[in-house]
Structure formats: C-alpha cells, structure tokens
Amino acid sequence: MTPSGGVAVLRCAGRSVARYVTRPALAPEHAPRPYLHPVTTLAGRTVTEALPDDHPHHLGAGVAVPDVAVAGAAVTGAAGDDPTGHDFWGGPSFVRGRGYVELGRHGVQRHDGFKLCDPDGFVAELSWTADGGRWLREYRTVAATCLSDSAWALDLTFSLTNVSGRGLSIGSPATNGRPGAAYGGFFWRAPKEASAPVAFGPAGEGEEALHGLRAEWVALAGAGWTLVFAGATEETRRDPWFVRAAEYPAVGSSLAHDARLPVAAGEGLVRRVVTVVADGRLGRDEAAALVRRAVTA
C-alpha cells in the first residue's frame, strides 16, 4: 500500500480490493472523515457506495458517530431546543420534538498519518475535532486477508480515546428520542440495486428480524455478492446491529443503543468488526464457516 494523492490502495492476493480516502474534499455538512471506497470483491464487483443521492453523507465503509457531547450536557433538551452534541456522522441531527434538523454542528475526523502502511493493511492515527479542539484520538487498524478464490476479509479495529480533558458521552438518534435509529460506530453503506438485498443471520432472515439484534454475525446478499459482518471481540458483540435493506442497504454497529455511552477523560473504547467480502450469494452455513475462519485468521 503506497499512499498517493490522499488515497491508499489495499491489496489482497495481488489484487486491488479497496481504496482508503484519507483527506476527502467534502462540504462541512458531510462531517468530513476518511473512508474506504470502493471496496470490491475479488472478481471486481463494487460492494460499497459513497455520497448516494438518498443519503449523501454515507461514505463507503468506516467509522461515524452522530452525537458526541460533553458529559452531563442536556443533549436533547426540551422540545424546540437544539442538542449540544457534535455530529461526526453528517447530514441533519435528530432533535427530540423536532425530528431531523440541520444544525451545522459537524465535527471532522482528520487523518494525522499512518503509523504503519503495508500492501495488505495499515494503522492510521486520526483526530476527531470540534469547536477548534481535539475531542478524540483514534487509532484505526485495517487489514485484508484472503479466504478463498472468491472471498476475502476486511478486518477493521478502531480505538477511540477521549483527549478533550472533559468527560464525554456518545449518543444516537435513538437515545435522543427516535426508536430504532441507534446507528453509530462501524458503518458500511452497500450499493443500492434494482432489488433490495437479502439480510440474514445465524438464526433469522429479514431486516425486521436482525435490526437491533445482538448476534455473532449478520449478512447482506445482493446481486452477485455477499457481505458477512462479525463482531470479533466480546465487547463488540454486545453492540446490537443496525441493519437496513428495504430503504437502502447498510449494516453498522450501535455504540449507543439503549442509553448514551459515557467516555471519561483519558479513557476510551475499542471495537473490531471483520467483514467477509464474497462473490456470489452465500448460504447460511457457508457464511458462518467463512466468518469463523476470518475472525481467527
């Protein structure tokens, strides 16, 4: 992997399988941040989407959080008040009593540099900044592992540390009053096709069955591709999955599902998600076998 022009290329079995955009030229309302796009199968089929018309703040695969606030602040307030948190997700913010409102309180994930950069992976340092200061430091580790002639795994770990000098908390639209919208953390936007992808997991099928579920893995299968997402640590597996298929195709984690997640000054959190990227449509048993192999590789 040799970074050039703000883009680093990730390779597996000698093939380019992902591009990591370190310094995208984005408007502030997109909450500028590094992201992976396009990510492709080994046969070259693109399985991410960036800046789609339906949600122009969706940026391929990466890490995004819609609400980071000073701990103890009235982040939702009374009806009509603005939240005090900063949006590292992009787009409008959900305000209790008002719905989604464009508040202009967007933070920025700044790529500070690579600590390690090899053809099959990298370790990057990022600063999450808002109000002119650094709120969070992130170390992001991404690696590609070949699993077969038709499948590979993207292993993404992010470690966030509160360097603001104050207690912080992480929220979501769900904790701010919108049930079922607990997105925040790892997020993968898949391409929208003529038909919605099939969502399935170890013991269920369909968006309604999987959304908000704590499961070892969940999968999306589209036209000629399958993505299988696995929480690779015990702490990651405690986060419920955010799953969309009908409105748009995406899978993410929920750092703040039932309540805001406190992050004390100097403390942090670590999450690891491994994604199997496969050509063709996998069955449940095949998906489970590849996930087990990918997580332990």
Rank of each mutant, 00 (worst) to 15 (best):
Arg33Phe: 09
Tyr35Ile: 01
Thr46Lys: 11
Asp53Ser: 14
Asp54Gly: 08
Val65Asn: 04
Thr40Tyr: 03
Val65Pro: 00
Gly72Ala: 07
Pro32Met: 06
Pro52Val: 06
His58Val: 08
Ala74His: 10
Leu42Asn: 05
Ala50His: 08
Val39His: 04
Arg45Thr: 14
Arg33Gln: 10
Thr40Pro: 00
His57Arg: 07
Thr48Gly: 04
Pro56Cys: 10
Pro34Ala: 10
His55Tyr: 11
Val68Phe: 07
Leu36Glu: 00
Ala74Lys: 09
Ala43Pro: 04
Ala73Trp: 07
Pro52His: 06
Thr48His: 01
Thr46Val: 15
Gly62His: 03
Val39Lys: 01
Val65Asp: 02
Glu29Val: 09
Ala50Glu: 10
Thr41Gln: 05
Asp54Arg: 14
Thr41Glu: 05
His58Glu: 11
Thr46Leu: 07
Pro52Trp: 09
Ala71Ile: 04
Arg33Glu: 08
Val65Arg: 00
Tyr35Gly: 01
Pro52Gln: 11
Ala74Leu: 11
Ala64Val: 02
Pro66Ser: 12
Arg33His: 10
Pro66Cys: 11
Arg33Lys: 14
Thr40Met: 13
Pro34Gly: 05
Gly72Ser: 09
Ala64Ile: 00
Arg45Pro: 02
Ala71Val: 03
Ala73Phe: 02
Val63His: 02
His57Phe: 14
Pro66Ile: 08
Glu29Tyr: 12
His58Cys: 08
His37Leu: 12
Asp67Arg: 09
Asp53Trp: 13
Ala73Gly: 11
Thr46Glu: 13
Ala69Met: 06
Asp67Ser: 15
Pro32Asn: 10
Thr48Ser: 11
Pro56Gln: 04
His30Gly: 08
Gly72His: 08
His55Leu: 08
Val70Gln: 14
Pro34Phe: 04
Ala71Tyr: 12
Gly62Asn: 01
Ala69Asn: 09
Val47Lys: 01
Gly44Lys: 09
Arg45His: 12
His57Asn: 13
His30Trp: 14
Thr48Asp: 03
Val68Pro: 03
Ala69Gln: 06
Gly44Ser: 11
Glu29Pro: 00
Ala61Gln: 09
